[in-house]
């Protein structure tokens, strides 16, 4: 087998084993979007009227609207959690070990991202299954066609986490990441409310939401769940992925990044 593939397979397998040993983490990661879906959305349903906008072809309930946003939320939280574990790994030595592998650093980091994305995608499908059991279903083909969007979104948000982890010196700073990265990204996006609804209260907020990379991930997932393709969202997500990935590899460059912080 190609040695580079051996490395990738081992990193994914290790992440998977770790995931199996931490079932509490899996359940916790599922509870969050399910609470939004089954509690928050139920409450909001009456308050919020949604008109027909693509990709929807008929009136939809609020629960149906927020499913794609919650899928993206899983990718976002996992990407950040993975960055948290990298800071921890760095203190523990396993990150040092990974980086002393003779393979190119970008390949090692990409492998690590693909590993955490694999776990995120498993969680997204479990979430979609549970949503389905509550009668919130998508197009049958949508479940298949959403896969590439989940991979791209997962790698993009993971790369953002990786970039942040290269600048975070200690674990404690993760609370700052929650406040200044995760929450603004999530709330200033189309995950919970459509942009036209946002524009009714503030066009400035709408514009911020429109350029937020997380919005593009949400819309890419939303369209593909309905077997549709939002080219703009896909293009933006792809561009952001390349940019963040490049920046993360730069952040881990031994000549400037990571270990230089002491």
């Amino acid at each position: 087998m190609n040695p580079a593939i051996v490395v990738l397979r081992a990193i994914v397998a290790r992440e998977f084993l770790r995931f199996i040993h931490q079932r509490e983490r899996f359940i916790a990661a599922l509870v969050r979007p399910l609470v939004w879906l089954l509690v928050f959305a139920a409450g909001f349903r009456a308050a919020l009227g949604l008109s027909i906008t693509p990709p929807y072809q008929t009136y939809i309930t609020y629960e149906v609207y927020i499913v794609p946003g919650l899928c993206a939320m899983i990718l976002l939280f996992n990407g950040m959690q993975s960055s948290l574990s990298l800071v921890y790994d760095r203190e523990m030595g396993s990150m040092r070990l990974l980086l002393t592998s003779p393979f190119p650093r970008w390949w090692l980091l990409l492998s690590r991202l693909l590993a955490s994305t694999t776990i995120s995608i498993l969680q997204v499908y479990t979430f979609l299954l549970i949503a389905g059991l509550f009668g919130i279903t998508m197009e049958p083909w949508g479940y298949v066609l959403v896969f590439p969007s989940l991979v791209l979104g997962g790698v993009m948000l993971g790369a953002l986490g990786l970039l942040l982890s290269s600048f975070i010196k200690q674990l404690e700073n993760f609370a700052g990441v929650m406040n200044f990265v995760i929450f603004p990204m999530f709330f200033l996006s189309s995950a919970l409310y459509p942009l036209w609804k946002m524009a009714e209260s503030s066009t400035l907020l709408r514009d911020i939401c429109a350029v937020n990379p997380f919005t593009h991930v949400v819309e890419m997932i939303r369209f593909s769940l309905y077997s549709d393709m939002n080219l703009a969202a896909f293009g933006w997500s792809f561009g952001w992925t390349v940019l963040l990935l490049g920046a993360a590899v730069w952040g881990y460059d031994p000549a400037r990044g990571m270990a230089r912080h002491r």
Binding site: P3, A4, V7, A10, I11, L97, S101
Partner: peptide, 8 residues
Amino acid sequence: FAALHGLS
């Protein structure tokens, strides 16, 4: 660890 060196 062996796999990190491409060995399997």
